[in-house]
Amino acid sequence: MKRLMLITLIIVITIGVFSLYSWGADLKIAMLLPGPISDQGWNMMAHNALKAAEKEFSAEIAYTERTPVSDFEEIFRGYAQAGFNIIMGHGFQFGDVAKKVAQEFPKTIFIVSSSDISQAPNLASFRTMDAQAGFIQGVVAALLTETNKVAYIGGMEIPPTINQNRGFRAGVKYINPSIEVISTFTGSFYDVAKAKEMAKAMAQKGVDIIVPDADVANLGVVEAAEEEDIKIIGCSTDMAEVSPDITITSLLEDFSKAFTTVVDYVLEGKFESRAYEMGVQEGALDLAPFRKYEEKVSKEDMAKINQVLDDLKSGKIDIAKYLED
């Protein structure tokens, strides 16, 4: 028992010593990420945005990757207590907890990406219009398919992938209702091998264009495309950098721009606790150059694609009308 007390004493002294230590800086931005920053997709995108903000606003940055659901609240609170001014949860799933913690720290700005929640005075959300992104991909796929079979491979069935898929189906039907659209979900953003097998199975079914929207697992679709007769239309980042031969184009999601725009609002005092939505109008979504496929797309098709982009920008096309339930 004596020894136990001795140990307790040592611990108490240690606490005392280390409690003297503390932090301090100006603009401090933190992010909670659901997965690893090296995923070539969703989390890397946010990590890049964080890096961009670090450069642009000379902010101090920090992030937590692979955040377990059970730790959301603790980590939000931890960053807030450590004096971070802007804290972002990367994904709708952070919404509930952000609402709760935001009330305790009214001076800290809380942001949730890929969500539509808000709470006065300090919680906002922003998202790129996933359905719009999918719609544009659908238009491109429908114009360029030769077999009249196109496909979407999502990771887990969550709002961003569900909406992207709905948009994709709508985009295809907008051009040609007789094209067959196959939609699947691998159930995981990590299982590369499964995504590859799925893409191969699609190739055997005659699909010639796939939209891979499964984060890390997209790499599996890329490998399948390199082996089979499939082309892909990338999501979020320019997949031509990964595999130029099979990438027709990519739907670029300028997450950094969307994020720094919100940070800018905060710095200029224009921040409102609302749901910011960003699409082609705001420059948060755009089509990547067609690169190797520039020549292979006919003038009429290219004109049609640009027409759709313009109509989306001007609001002439209302995607909601084309979405299936």
Binding site: A62, T64, D71, I75, Y79
Partner: peptide
């Protein structure tokens, strides 16, 4: 686990 979270954060 708790200290590990903070190690990552700070």
């Amino acid at each position: 686990k708790s200290g590990g979270n903070l190690m990552q954060m700070i």
